[in-house]
């Protein structure tokens, strides 16, 4: 493998991993607060279409990313009101949010089918970003760097800040947290909004970076992979990062090996490898003394009704 090819592969891995990583980090915070939001795919689609539309009208992809976060966060607010205030079933409401997001993004996106927009550009000078060697460091989309920063940020927030501790407490024992005076619902509202914003940002990666266009179901199921990743990474930010990059690596190597003419295996087998490898590796590294059940936030998916 030549050096140039290697650089391309690294770029490809980061590209494939980033949207999943960002969405998964958002979902991780949501789940840590004790809420299971299965609406990630729908929120990503809402983010993707909003990012594209705003970028088309304003000419600014960066503004598109911000709008995507806002729109997806708003959609997650619907979920929050239904599940927190009205204590609706989280699984059913999350699924409904995905269906809603798929539909509403298709409707809102109809006028934008068939056009393209400016790709979200690099934050580094062109000389660095397009240098055949240095691009491996400087040529990525800004969202790739943001994904890495967010991983650290989420870890630091959950593990090192008082608010993060409270959020985890709410997820592990909502009754107890409530009884010592923590605002359980408020914290969960904020977590859900954060999760929505991250899903929207992840979605914007599709319509502004990967393929600057809008088409229905653009994210093609990546939201579900993000949710699965959170579980297999045992709700740990660093492992979510590892899992997302591993998934990106296997998918990139799979395509590169096919493109290089390696066809000893059936294409269907190679296509299933990213999923298999990610599950196997994460299952192995997270196989500790504690079972998956005990690692999950204790209140995950359980509605909370404040008792007097």
């Amino acid at each position: 493998m030549s050096a140039m090819l290697l650089i391309s592969v690294v770029m490809g891995i980061a590209g494939a991993a980033t949207p999943i990583l960002i969405a998964a980090l958002g979902e991780l915070v949501v789940e840590k607060s004790g809420v299971l939001n299965l609406g990630v795919e729908g929120m990503m689609l809402i983010g993707a279409v909003t990012a594209f539309a705003v970028s088309v009208h304003t000419g600014s992809p960066a503004l598109g990313c911000l709008a995507a976060m806002l729109a997806a966060a708003l959609s997650s607010l619907i979920f929050a009101v239904l599940t927190l205030t009205l204590t609706a079933n989280q699984v059913a409401t999350g699924l409904a949010l995905t269906i809603f997001g798929t539909g509403v993004s298709a409707l809102a996106g109809a006028p934008y089918v068939g056009i393209t927009t400016t790709r979200l550009g690099s934050i580094f000078p062109q000389a660095l970003a397009e240098d055949p060697w240095l691009r491996v460091l400087f040529g990525h989309s800004p969202l790739v760097y943001l994904g890495l920063i967010l991983t650290f940020g989420v870890w630091w927030f959950l593990a090192r800040t008082r608010t993060g501790l409270v959020l985890r407490a709410v997820g592990e024992g909502d009754e107890a947290a409530h009884s010592i005076g923590y605002p359980v619902l408020k914290i969960r509202y904020l977590a859900i909004l954060f999760g929505g914003a991250m899903a929207g940002l992840g979605g914007s990666y599709f319509s502004l970076v990967l393929t600057p266009m809008w088409a229905e179901r653009l994210t093609a199921g990546r939201g579900w992979i993000a949710i699965a990743l959170v579980v297999f990474a045992s709700w740990r930010p660093a492992w979510v990062l590892a899992g997302a990059y591993l998934f990106g690596a296997v998918i990139t190597l799979e395509l590169q090996s096919k493109a290089a003419g390696f066809n000893a295996f059936a294409p269907e087998f190679l296509s299933s490898l990213p999923y298999l490898a990610t599950i196997v590796v994460l299952a192995v590294i997270s196989a500790g003394r504690r079972s998956a059940k005990t690692r999950a936030p204790a209140c995950l998916g359980r509605p909370f009704r404040a008792s007097a």
Binding site: M4, A220, T252, Q256
Partner: peptide
């Protein structure tokens, strides 16, 4: 779309 784009890029790399 994401995988289709990556496949095309891999081919171009080759």
């Amino acid at each position: 779309p994401a995988k289709e784009a990556d496949a095309a890029k891999a081919l171009l790399d080759q």
